[in-house]
């Protein structure tokens, strides 16, 4: 299968660290997300993910692992995350292994609740809630 270049976005004051290492099937997003233009930030990411998943469906050899550690995101970013999750779940439904880990701080009830909300959308992909403490 053709290898896709890693998609990397350094974190900014209002957009998260994003690293989609397609070769090793490891994806991660960390931090805060309320970019000026969520469509401009997430559009290319979702496009690259679609290309990757189309190839992954044809060759579902290794599990796709996605780690999220968000501290805040606005409603436009929530929409984008939902788009990403829907694509991963669709790929999982065709037999691609997908394991998502949603990390949230022990005192962050908002991120915990979002994680619980999102988890209800997965029937084929594994969606794991992971609580972490300060250390």
């Amino acid at each position: 299968m053709e290898t896709l270049e890693t998609l990397y976005r350094a974190p900014t004051e209002r957009s998260p660290l994003l690293e989609f290492d397609f070769t090793n099937r490891r994806l991660r997003i960390e931090g805060e997300s309320y970019p000026e233009d969520a469509a401009a930030f997430y559009g290319p990411v979702i496009q690259a993910l679609e290309t990757f998943l189309a190839a992954a469906v044809a060759a579902p050899d290794a599990t796709v692992r996605f780690e999220l550690r968000m501290s805040y995101f606005n409603s436009s970013s929530a929409k984008a995350l939902m788009n990403i999750f829907q694509r991963l779940e669709a790929a999982a439904a065709t037999g691609v292994g997908v394991h998502i880990r949603w990390h949230y701080h022990v005192e962050d009830d908002t991120m915990q609740e979002f994680g619980e909300d999102f988890s209800e959308d997965f029937a084929h992909a594994v969606f794991e809630l992971c609580e972490f403490d300060d250390d």
């Binding site: 969520a38 409603s75 436009s76 929530a78 929409k79 939902m82 829907q86």
Partner: peptide, 18 residues
């Protein structure tokens, strides 16, 4: 959140629900 974005709304109107 699951619904497709309406044509006339940038961001999907979920801001008010939030």
């Amino acid at each position: 959140l699951r619904a497709p974005v309406e044509d006339d709304s940038r961001g999907g109107n979920i801001g008010l629900i939030e």
